[in-house]
Write a protein that binds this DNA or RNA. Sequence first.
DNA 1: TCAAGAAGATTGTCTGACATTCTTGCAATC
DNA 2: GATTGCAAGAATGTCAGACAATCTTCTTGA
Lengths: 223, 223
Amino acid sequence: MPPDLNLRISPRTVQRETVDKLRLAIFSGLFQPGSRLIESQLCAQLGISRPSLREALRSLEAERLIEIVPNRGPSIPSLSWEVATAIYEVRELLEVEAAGRCASRISPEQLRELEKSLSAFEEAASSNDSLAQVMTAADFYSIILANCGNPILEEVHRGLVARISFFRGRSMSLEGRAQSSLAEMKEIFECIAAGDEKAARKASKNHLLKAKAAAKMSMDSEM
Amino acid sequence: MPPDLNLRISPRTVQRETVDKLRLAIFSGLFQPGSRLIESQLCAQLGISRPSLREALRSLEAERLIEIVPNRGPSIPSLSWEVATAIYEVRELLEVEAAGRCASRISPEQLRELEKSLSAFEEAASSNDSLAQVMTAADFYSIILANCGNPILEEVHRGLVARISFFRGRSMSLEGRAQSSLAEMKEIFECIAAGDEKAARKASKNHLLKAKAAAKMSMDSEM
DNA sequence: TCAAGAAGATTGTCTGACATTCTTGCAATC
DNA sequence: GATTGCAAGAATGTCAGACAATCTTCTTGA
């Protein structure tokens, strides 16, 4: 009779997910931009050693989710509007292309998934949970990107969106932004469902421009 | 009279450059794709401890320059043609945009730099040093990207180019590729110098298509 | 009030260790 | 002879503890 079978399932794999935990914490806005991350504190909170933590921090640094200044340690970068604009511009470039490709190649099954994620966002949009709004909207995009036929496009896009996730929560909180965002996303969906590549690009571009403007507004009012 | 001033200049900063050393080693094709990197060996070669090395490896992993499989350790990823194509496509998207923007905003001073880098490539092209060719060509692109007015575009592009650097050395070695590449780059330069945005985009797109085709040819012949 | 110095905190790095997992070569069996 | 199983070695994943270098902050003195 084996006494303790599977008492600790995946004992080592857990630590490897440190990056994901931290990334999620940054996404959800747990840390203020500009605030420093103290290694010893994080170690205690995550229950891992400093070497392991520092590995995770290096990954996040490479993803530009944190900054590590020599002898000052890691901190959450405060996004300037200049950089945010640049990110939005590149995002537009990628997302418009992805929407266009997606329109002409998505499978019926994935199209249903896309519709489902749109419904999820619709539900979130009627609530006041801006985190849920950002998450469901991200699902919508990621389905489009996953079906554009170019894994690199998807990967780069994900990296960029991650860096402005902080913003997006704020801009979603703007009066009426979630609803108009919903309308724009529905338009994108319709174009993709119709297989109209050109229209999908246009709808996607329009959505991005609006999102960018909303982000700017939320930033101006905050700071 | 200070006895030993700057005996060890930047004693701690040196280790921080481990990532750069490794990155350069990967660029120059020191490691075969698919080959494993043994931590203890690298530690000895670089003269650093395992924790420090592992931090550096995490950075490179996040940049997709190496792969780290759990319990198997780091290795050089072997680029499939599928992924390489995807990278070329995104690179085209970014580079065409950058060339267009650059045409309408580059300063006379930077334009001279661009011309200089073109001359450097011209010289390298007449030699058989394919590493020099790749390096000088990279300089040419990076000046364009640095003058497109979007730092993110530049950053993402750099990351992508790094991942296919292995290829580019091979394709440059193709008979006549360096010369035709030179002609295409000259064309791009002329368009930018003339401030013709549309033509710059077209020339850039043409160049990328040719480069992609050359890369495919070199890959087919190798494997 | 402001500047210089000291104490504390934090990072950068190392050594050493150990459990887990993978690889490889050998032996035993069919 | 080929295949399977096992065991030894190698390599990774993770940790604890330590120490110098650097930054921050607070105190003290001019």
